[in-house]
Design a protein around this nucleic acid. Structure first.
Length: 402
DNA sequence: ATTCCACAGGAAACAGTGGTCC
DNA sequence: GGACCACTGTTTCCTGTGGAAT
């Protein structure tokens, strides 16, 4: 007799042993009671913001560190505390947070700031104005209502890339906005994953944005291990629900990935969910390994599905002719376009798309010099062909090509 | 030493969309 | 309703590249 898979899951969910008691604590952005191994950094962030308690504008601040080093968590916690403390004083501050990666455009980022300051659709429409006009309205709002605004820009390196591409000096304008403000003030806190991002910036921006700089060191494997223990205590029914070997493995894998605690916590969560589904008594190293592999595959499938049609066609072209040069991949791609009735893009655009796909790690391109036969890139697929078929198979236009 | 291949990849221009402002 | 703006995706044009062939 076959069992309905949904019935089976429902059955397991109600009868299986429960391991997780607090799912939220297995997310990286969960705010723990104490942020471990970050005392110095918290102190430094607090130091730069302290002037607000004495009624003056704090310095702009730049926070660096690799992904998963707790930068955002620390900045948010300190700012919230400082904001609460300043609320009663003569210099209340207004915290505004945005992640550059969540906004596809510079315009979107400014609108997001505006909304948080209380400017509605009428005051700042979501499109149609020039960037400088939106900025002018933001500054006016701050001035008129004497707001002491602290703009936290997460992944500011991304913003810097957008602005450098479009030749807008918005970062410069932001850092100098105080010269135009009477009663209000504007402080910038930039958070960056990329330690080298300043290289591409206007020196004037660097000098005012980086009034204060804090670098978050990567976590060591031992530190990640301790962070995991704390999360286990907060999230699982019993502290022995995760085997020590499983935690060690989880920490070791993340430790080798440049000390990324976010990754370790994500892996632990997926492993815990798998263990719970199985009705296992505890999380084993096997669960952790499976979780890591599953996350990797999920990431690849999600990336593939998010590609535009022509990037998908290019991936299929690479899959069909491993080790092919750009010209050969392009020829294969043209053939696929013909068969699916698509108008093919130019080779220039196709090479550009191949580079984008290469950046996300789905294919690899190695430049080879073939003397008389010129310079080209040899492409091959970095993910399993089955993964590509699974990800793209649901696309009706492509399913017959796979 | 020079030539030449098959591109890589930067820069600029353009088309199209969806909006505001006056 | 026309001028203007941001933005994305694309095309066109162009310069640079390193080693085998000559």
């Amino acid at each position: 007799m076959t069992v309905d898979p949904v019935d089976r899951l429902l059955e397991e969910a109600t009868t299986g042993a429960s391991i997780i008691k607090n799912r939220a604590a297995l997310r990286f952005d969960y705010m723990p009671r104490v942020i471990k191994h970050r005392d110095d950094e918290q102190e430094q962030v607090a130091q730069t913001l302290l002037p607000v308690l004495k009624g003056s504008r704090p310095s702009n601040l730049l926070v660096y560190g690799r992904p998963g080093t707790g930068k955002t968590l620390v900045v948010r916690r300190v700012l919230v505390k400082v904001q609460a403390k300043a609320a009663g004083g003569g210099f209340p501050i207004r915290l505004v947070y945005a992640n550059s990666k969540n906004e596809t455009t510079l315009y979107g980022l400014l609108v997001s700031f505006g909304r948080q300051l209380g400017l509605n659709e009428k005051r700042i429409p979501s499109t149609g104005l020039s960037i400088s006009e939106v900025f002018r309205r933001l500054v006016n709002e701050i001035k008129e209502r004497s707001i002491n605004a602290v703009f936290v820009i997460d992944e500011i390196d991304h913003l810097a890339r957008i602005t450098s591409r479009s030749h807008k000096d918005i970062l410069y304008q932001m850092t100098r906005a105080n010269e135009r403000l009477g009663d209000g003030s504007l402080t910038l806190v930039g958070i960056s994953n990329d330690l080298a991002f300043k290289d591409g910036l206007d020196p004037r921006v660097i000098s005012s944005l980086g009034e204060e700089e804090i670098v978050f060191a990567s976590y060591t494997t031992g530190q990640i291990r301790l962070i995991l223990e704390e999360r286990v205590a907060d999230s699982l029914e019993r502290t022995d629900a995760a085997e020590p070997a499983a935690l060690n493995l989880c920490a070791a894998m993340a430790g080798s990935e440049h000390g990324d605690a976010r990754r370790a916590i994500d892996t632990l969560r997926v492993a815990a969910e798998a263990a719970e589904r199985e009705g296992a008594a505890s999380i084993t190293p096997g669960h952790v390994r499976a979780a890591a592999a599953k996350m990797e595959e999920r990431k690849e499938i999600a990336a593939l599905r998010s590609y535009p049609l022509h990037e998908k066609l290019l991936v299929i072209a690479v899959m069909r002719s491993p080790g092919a040069s750009t010209g050969e991949v392009y020829a294969a791609y043209r053939d696929l376009c013909r068969r699916t009735g698509q108008r093919s893009l130019t080779q220039r655009r196709a090479t550009q798309m191949l580079s984008e796909v290469e950046m996300s790690g789905i294919v690899s391109g190695r430049i080879t010099h073939q003397g008389m036969h010129g310079r080209t890139k040899k492409f091959r697929l970095l993910v399993a062909a089955e993964t590509v078929s699974e990800a793209l198979g649901e696309d009706l236009a492509l399913s017959e090509l796979l």
